[in-house]
Design a protein around this nucleic acid. Structure first.
Lengths: 246, 246
DNA sequence: AATGTCTAATCATCATACATTAAGGGTGAG
DNA sequence: CTCACCCTTAATGTATGATGATTAGACATT
């Protein structure tokens, strides 16, 4: 990679931890082609192979586990395995960073307006009948929850996420999923019955376009919808993130 | 969140590890409002407060550290602190998940086509003079590297990332940054001198639109650019991800 | 065929000890 | 007075050994 602006000429030799070295080696092996389910041996095996104590290996394992690379199972036949993929873990990593950096309302809504319209277009092309049915269910439920702000907000955000799911693109879905924790609290506090009715109606129209397979219409309707939704500005310098419910 | 279809009535009782419990408690405190730099005490402090041994605390710490929530410093006055934000760590989390799920060429290019055009539009509105200068530098360098496929690819991808940076939205930037590792290998192998010339020219035109502050033009030019770029299909069922260079 | 039981493998946790690192203060030379 | 150096001290990093808890699989029982 070419040097980006602001990159330091060298990064501090911070690690020098044996466990960090082990993490790096296993990460390399992982990206070198290991796949979910592959076994990596037991704590003792690895301790012996790397020539360190079990404590050090455990440190490395906890780190790899938190990164979502390996899973650990106890008992006979247990040990380390390459993990199955878990999109929510990635979404979680983003909420942590969003909290640390203190994402603003403006950044959040810009991101939504950048991604979601074209996502609706993809959904119109790719959505399965089952996914359309799920969308319809969410819209119907939302109509029935117009007076319950918290529940309505949940359902409305679920609708947006379901659109991302219907788009059939896991990278996009993961990104939108990761914005969810930041969205929730801000949108709930702006939800009145009037707003809820309009949101529910627009969601229905977006759904119709998706069900018809009309990508352009779905895109433009989602675009209009977001233009209205984000016109209720939140406080821009406040931290918005809460932990994802697990 | 409302119950998604396919959710099991109850999820398997996993872990029940003491260290996991500690991780959860500290995560809650973190999202409850702790900010970078806040001290959390020492290993021994925490071991006493949670009523567990140092080993258990260390397991929890390694996990929190890998999640990017805390940093650890040794020596007098050391201990746990809430970490500074590090967007690259998040990008890294995504590349792990992309590798595990085996993202396809189609998903990758769809994601780019969904996000980057509007990102170029944001850049046209928000880019500082310094950021425009950086973009121009990258375009010039790319013109000088038309025959060096690897270097040209680096510079071209840096251009796209610099556009995201100029857009001034850290959420979008983090997302595009995280796609980078998947992009690199696929684009390099399709780069001929002919393709490189066209890419460099289009980058220059996108830059001009950004420099002029013409958001619509920047958006449409980026859109056209990507339409061409992704017309070189890679193998769709192959794993594309490699670890980010650190 | 389904259920209960034993056993070995393996991680989770604890206790203790020593090594290594870094911050801060004290000391002496210039 | 200032600077370089060393020493103390606080804290993590690593090692060793032991015990308890959990699991898979083989085997026995209903």
């Amino acid at each position: 990679m070419a040097t980006a602006p602001g990159d330091k000429p060298w990064r501090p030799v911070q690690g020098a931890r044996a466990s960090g070295e082990i993490v790096e080696q296993i990460r390399k092996a992982f990206f070198g082609g290991m796949m979910p389910g592959d076994r990596l041996g037991t704590e003792s095996d690895l301790a012996e192979q790397f020539g360190v104590s079990r404590i050090t290996i455990r440190d490395a394992i906890r780190s790899l586990e938190a990164q979502g690379i390996v899973t650990v199972r106890v008992g006979a036949g247990g040990g380390l395995r390459i993990a199955e993929s878990d999109p929510d873990r990635y979404a979680d990593a983003l909420s942590i960073q969003l909290h640390l950096m203190g994402i603003t309302w403006e950044e959040l809504t810009e991101a939504m307006r950048s991604v979601e319209p074209s996502t609706a277009g993809l959904a119109a092309r790719h959505a399965s009948g089952e996914q359309v049915a799920r969308l319809r269910g969410l819209v119907d439920d939302a109509h029935a929850a117009l007076d319950d702000a918290a529940r309505f907000t949940d359902l409305a955000l679920d609708f947006h996420l379901a659109v991302a799911e219907a788009a059939g693109n896991r990278a996009i879905r993961a990104f939108l999923r990761s914005l969810r924790s930041a969205q929730h609290m801000k949108f709930e506090e702006n939800t009145s019955r009037e707003v809820a009715e309009r949101v529910a109606r627009m969601h229905g129209e977006i759904l119709d376009a998706i069900a018809d397979g009309d990508a352009d219409l779905a895109t433009s309707r989602m675009n209009e919808h977001l233009a209205l939704v984000v016109s209720h500005p939140g406080k821009s310098d406040e931290h918005l993130c809460v932990p994802l419910t697990q």
